[in-house]
Design a protein around this nucleic acid. Sequence first.
DNA 1: CTGAAAGCGCTAACAG
DNA 2: CTGTTAGCGCTTTCAG
Lengths: 339, 339
Amino acid sequence: MADRRARVGIVDVAARAGVSVGTASKALNGRGQLREETRARVRSAAYELGFIPSAVAASLLTGRTYTVGLIMTDHHGRFSLPILHGAEDALGWDEALAFVCDTRDDPIREQHYVRSLMRRRVDGIIVAGRRTEPRPPLSGAPRVPVVYAFARSADPADCSVVVDEEAGAVLAVEHLVRTGRRHIAHVTGPHGHASARARVDGTARALRMAGLELLGDPWYGGWSEVWGRFAAAALVRAHPEVDAVFCGSDAIGRGVADGLRECGRRVPDDVALVGVDNWQPTAEGCRPPLTSVDLNLQQVGRTAGTLLLEAIQHGGVATGIHTVPCRLVVRASSAPLSG
Amino acid sequence: MADRRARVGIVDVAARAGVSVGTASKALNGRGQLREETRARVRSAAYELGFIPSAVAASLLTGRTYTVGLIMTDHHGRFSLPILHGAEDALGWDEALAFVCDTRDDPIREQHYVRSLMRRRVDGIIVAGRRTEPRPPLSGAPRVPVVYAFARSADPADCSVVVDEEAGAVLAVEHLVRTGRRHIAHVTGPHGHASARARVDGTARALRMAGLELLGDPWYGGWSEVWGRFAAAALVRAHPEVDAVFCGSDAIGRGVADGLRECGRRVPDDVALVGVDNWQPTAEGCRPPLTSVDLNLQQVGRTAGTLLLEAIQHGGVATGIHTVPCRLVVRASSAPLSG
DNA sequence: CTGAAAGCGCTAACAG
DNA sequence: CTGTTAGCGCTTTCAG
């Protein structure tokens, strides 16, 4: 172990071990047929010199860089960071490293980043979306595999990994039904969002399967707490018999919880609540802590990483729309009706 | 504009333009003395072939990769993402790209990542901390410049960019005093956290300068809403005259707001509130929206990026502890006392 | 079992 | 003004 003056290259290692560079290379990479004694000698020479092989040089030769680009569009990282973690898992922290590029939702920036990534010869690109609406495919049709995560590409020929949001809603509603709720309402985000519509559909499906009906119409609004509070008040007025609310997001859920409390309804005794996102700060800050549908974003990232890796290895192109299921995380807001 | 079969290299461009590779290189990089007509011919050949120069090959030659490593330790990215953005700004999205490595607070992972980054020959490394306690320097003493952001290195010889948290507290308290508050309490996180202690010190200093005293002792606890709610109730009981609370975090601030409301105190009419972090979801979800001390993390990242760049260009090592000031973001929770 | 030599894609002298 | 040549640091045939 040492840190010498300049950069130590494989030639230095070879010299110190008294072998040729070719031999040194083989010894270090476990390739070829070498006497074990030679291997050991090279290895210790490398160690003593603090030799760190250059991935740059290796890439030039092999054509693979063992790097991928991760394009994110949500600067707060609520969606893209879990995706990054999953991708890191799949890529293996020993293998590939990820260039993370935050486009800040600007197509120009995105285009620049793609060019930058191509110049760096990344082996592939993961595009992490911020909403679930299909997004335009990367412009410039990069010559490497691309996998879209969370927000699928508008081009069905592309490879996308998405969350089954409708099934997530089903999970939530089935849970409410199973715990004894019968008068279930749904407060969610803007009608213009695919996520909101998918959850409405899932809710309807689950209720139908249980032989129930939604209490009134879905309450479309925003994704915010303010909307949740407002909706809760209106909801109680319109349907006093409500005994559960499936909320389109944790923020809404929190707002609804506060709103209900202020109307004199107890959660979960009078009304059970389930949210979506399972976002720690919100779900656990809620009073009481909020049962929530986890979007499994890390799994989305892991799947995306795995698909990308396969595409890279098979020299092919990734294709198809892959779906990841949601997961229900039960907390106090949906305790069974003890009645 | 085209996408041909394999990879098009500069030899292909040169061939198509009817010049040698050397000339093509010069034309494309604006180096050397060339007839404008030749330059143009090469450029259009490159364009028609969809030529994307290989940064890998260039790096091998020049020794610089125009990439940096960004090591983050907080998987939720609340601290490291703003730092990343700032760093991106400083590095220039056209210039350098960042490998983002999430160590998940595991020293082993960190060590592996550092090795990975060194093998990729990054030009420098930024280490984004998660807490403000000094952290052990990167092991293995990388041969490239390293800048620590947010959490400074325990080795004072290293280069660190930190937030002046004490000054941030002064900002908050001065604001409260200026808006007419006189009975100011302080609810904050664990005594074991340097951040909590720095804010306590800043609070004391600002009050002293205003000729005031803290109302009772600082309330050390956790960073959570739960703690804020609890503390608010206890505080009102212990010091009914309280007319302002400086909270060590936005989460605490939110808890205090709820707690106070439930004790029958109005915010800001009876009690003004200021938090720290200026974390959108919490600060704006608060009722009323919470005035907060912004830690200027993006600026921390920008400074770190700039210092790193300088160190890289001057081939030297970055040094010194650099401090970034906080910024107060005023919202409804601290409206002036209209009394 | 080990060494020598070619070359990955590009740039930078130096010739012409 | 343009072409030729020699590598950057490494892996990999192919001889020895």
